[in-house]
Amino acid sequence: MKTHDIDAAVRGLNPHRATDQVSDDAWAELSEAVTRTGTDTAPTVVRHMPRRRLVLAAACTLLIAGVVGATLVNRPHQDQPQALSFTERGDKLIVRVVDLNADPKRYNEEFKRMGLNVTVKSLAVSPPWVGQMITFSARDDEEMGQIGRVEAGEDCNGTLNASDPGCQEGVELPKNYKGHTEIVFGRPAKPGEMYYHFSSTATDKGEVLAGLTVRNKTVAELLPVIKARGVREVEYTGSADNKPLKSVPGNWYVDNAMSPADGLVTLYVSPTPFR
């Protein structure tokens, strides 16, 4: 088995240097998926989403009942709103998620109707990752090489842009694709649900502490500001050893902050300032 972007998993072990963060549960779930064997098992080559995207040419789409769905052939259920959009471009298909809250079974059923052996899994993510592809995988490098990524807002039809349902991130693959692929994308978290994927710092754009400077601020300085952002619970972790702490003095210093769930922030702290 070959695995792409092993360094992404390694970076996840050091939250202060990673570009994104995936919880232990998510790694366990995805690891199980890519290590199963058998002809009908999950794919074994995994590609985690980098920030760069594949640039694709524009493709026409058809507006159906307020969502975008491409008409390739006359298939059942095409007069109903779709969870996915399928857009034809030559001998390729561009597939985008339209309904972020749909049951994944709907996605899989629509792929099956298109004659494609593709399964979709949705995981709870922090707000800036909602609707984004977290990872996609295939059984081998040959299959992986046939799949490309499409960026939200990239080469959309007419006046559609990244805020429109039919113009979100997606994948491009051959219309006659015979491989087995699994796609994992981010969905909004349910109340009380932990994020499987979130940014390496809660101060990133779209996160709960977006734009806030936390490094070398004391805990006492930050707590009122954090709570003013709607944070309901604060946890502490030692910055040096990543061990959880029940409580810390107000004069301890903060190195970083993460938000692993709605309303929850973890502060990485130390008794001395950080260089």
Rank of each mutant, 00 (worst) to 15 (best):
K2Y: 09
T3F: 02
D5L: 01
D5R: 14
D7R: 10
A8H: 04
R11P: 00
R11H: 06
N14C: 06
T19E: 11
V22R: 14
S23G: 07
A26H: 13
A26Y: 12
A26E: 13
A28N: 11
L30R: 07
L30Q: 04
R36F: 08
R36H: 12
T41K: 10
T44P: 01
V45L: 03
V45T: 04
R47M: 10
H48M: 11
R51Y: 12
R52V: 13
L54N: 07
V55F: 06
L56W: 08
L56I: 12
A57Q: 13
A59I: 03
L62P: 11
A65I: 11
G69I: 09
T71N: 11
N74R: 15
N74E: 15
R75M: 13
P76L: 15
D79E: 15
Q80Y: 11
P81A: 07
S85R: 04
S85W: 06
R89G: 01
G90E: 06
G90F: 04
D91V: 10
K92W: 09
K92F: 04
I94T: 09
V98R: 01
V98K: 03
V98Q: 09
V98N: 07
D99E: 11
Y107R: 04
Y107C: 02
E109T: 05
E110H: 04
F111N: 03
L116N: 00
L116M: 10
N117C: 07
N117D: 13
V118W: 00
L123G: 02
V125W: 04
V125F: 01
P128S: 13
I134W: 02
F136T: 10
S137W: 01
I147Q: 00
G148D: 08
R149C: 00
E151K: 14
A152V: 00
G153P: 00
G153V: 03
E154V: 00
E154M: 11
E154F: 05
T159E: 10
T159K: 12
L160A: 03
N161S: 07
P165N: 12
C167T: 06
Q168N: 09
G170E: 04
K175D: 13
K175L: 06
G179P: 04
T181Q: 08
I183T: 04
V184L: 14
V184W: 08
F185M: 09
P188K: 00
E193D: 07
Y195R: 07
H197D: 15
F198W: 11
S199C: 08
S200P: 00
S200Q: 03
A202D: 03
T203M: 11
G206N: 08
E207A: 02
L209D: 05
A210G: 12
V214Y: 05
V214R: 01
N216V: 03
T218I: 03
K227F: 07
R229S: 14
G230I: 06
V231Y: 09
V231P: 12
V234A: 05
E235D: 15
D241L: 02
P244M: 10
L245Y: 06
S247R: 09
V248N: 07
W252V: 02
Y253G: 00
V254Q: 06
V254N: 01
N256I: 13
A257P: 09
A257S: 06
M258Q: 15
S259W: 03
V265N: 01
T266R: 15
T266F: 12
S270T: 12
P273D: 14
F274L: 02
